[in-house]
Simulated scan of single mutants.
Amino acid sequence: MHLFSSTNKYIKKPSYFTDNEFKELIFKIDKSRLNDGIKTSLQLMKFNKSAIAEISKRYKKVKKQFQKDKQLHDCSIFTKEQGGFGFTFMIAKDKNLLEEKLKEYIKYKKKQLFARTWVGVGEINGIIQFIITV
């Protein structure tokens, strides 16, 4: 804005990008350097304030559940924008099980909700292992 002669030289960052869980999720996705990582992060950042708050709340809950019982847990969110975009975060301790369940689940959700695109992100030991797009 400063380059375009805006009178206000400081523009406050949108408050919904200050959510710690959301920032953590985006950081993990970007840090993974997997195919579609940056694209996935950009798609998530297009969500509106309430959708970001909702996915952050669900992400936090799933992490707590996993820490408690070390079983597979997931959360998802869907928007009708862009022809229908869905996102699933899944966490587990077994890599083969995680990959298999994540693939099955995102295919199912895409078909169920008539989404144009569904992205699944799988985490093991705090590291994103899979980013799968269908």
Score class of each variant (00 low, 15 high):
Phe114Met: 10
Glu123Met: 07
Lys111Ile: 15
Tyr105Lys: 12
Ile124Met: 01
Glu104Trp: 13
Leu97Val: 12
Arg116Ala: 02
Ala92Gly: 14
Gln112Asp: 08
Val121Gln: 00
Leu97Ile: 05
Ala115Gln: 04
Asn125Ala: 11
Leu98Met: 10
Gly126Ile: 01
Glu100Trp: 07
Leu98Asn: 11
Lys110Ala: 13
Lys110Ser: 06
Lys107Trp: 14
Ile106Ser: 07
Leu113Arg: 00
Glu99Val: 09
Asn96Gln: 02
Val119Asn: 09
Tyr105Leu: 14
Lys93Pro: 15
Asn125Cys: 06
Ile106Met: 09
Asn125Asp: 09
Tyr108Arg: 04
Ala92Thr: 09
Ile124Gly: 01
Gly126Leu: 08
Leu98Ser: 15
Asn96His: 01
Phe114Gln: 15
Leu113Val: 06
Lys95Asn: 13
Glu104Met: 08
Gln112Val: 04
Asp94Phe: 08
Glu123Trp: 02
Lys109Glu: 14
Lys93Ile: 15
Tyr108Lys: 04
Glu99Arg: 03
Gly126Tyr: 11
Glu99Ser: 13
Tyr105Phe: 13
Lys103Gln: 12
Lys93Arg: 11
Glu99His: 08
Leu97Tyr: 10
Ala92Glu: 15
Val119Lys: 07
Glu123Ala: 06
Thr117Gly: 00
Gly120Cys: 05
Lys103Pro: 00
Lys103Arg: 10
Glu104Cys: 01
Phe114Asn: 12
Glu100Phe: 14
Glu99Phe: 14
Gly120Phe: 11
Lys109Gln: 10
Val121Arg: 03
Lys93Val: 15
Thr117Leu: 01
Ala115Gly: 10
Tyr108His: 09
Leu98Cys: 06
Asn96Asp: 08
Glu123Ser: 10
Glu104Thr: 15
Val121Ala: 07
Ile124Arg: 03
Lys101Phe: 07
Ile106Tyr: 12
Lys109Tyr: 08
Glu99Tyr: 08
Tyr108Ala: 00
Arg116Gly: 02
Leu97Ala: 06
Gly120Arg: 06
Lys111Tyr: 15
Leu98Pro: 11
Leu102Asp: 10
Leu98Lys: 11
Gly126Glu: 10
Thr117Gln: 00
Glu100Cys: 04
Lys109Met: 07
Thr117Arg: 01
Leu102Arg: 12
Gln112Phe: 13
Asn125Thr: 06
Phe114Ala: 12
Leu98Val: 07
Gly122Lys: 05
Lys111Cys: 09
Leu98Trp: 13
Leu98Thr: 06
Gln112Pro: 00
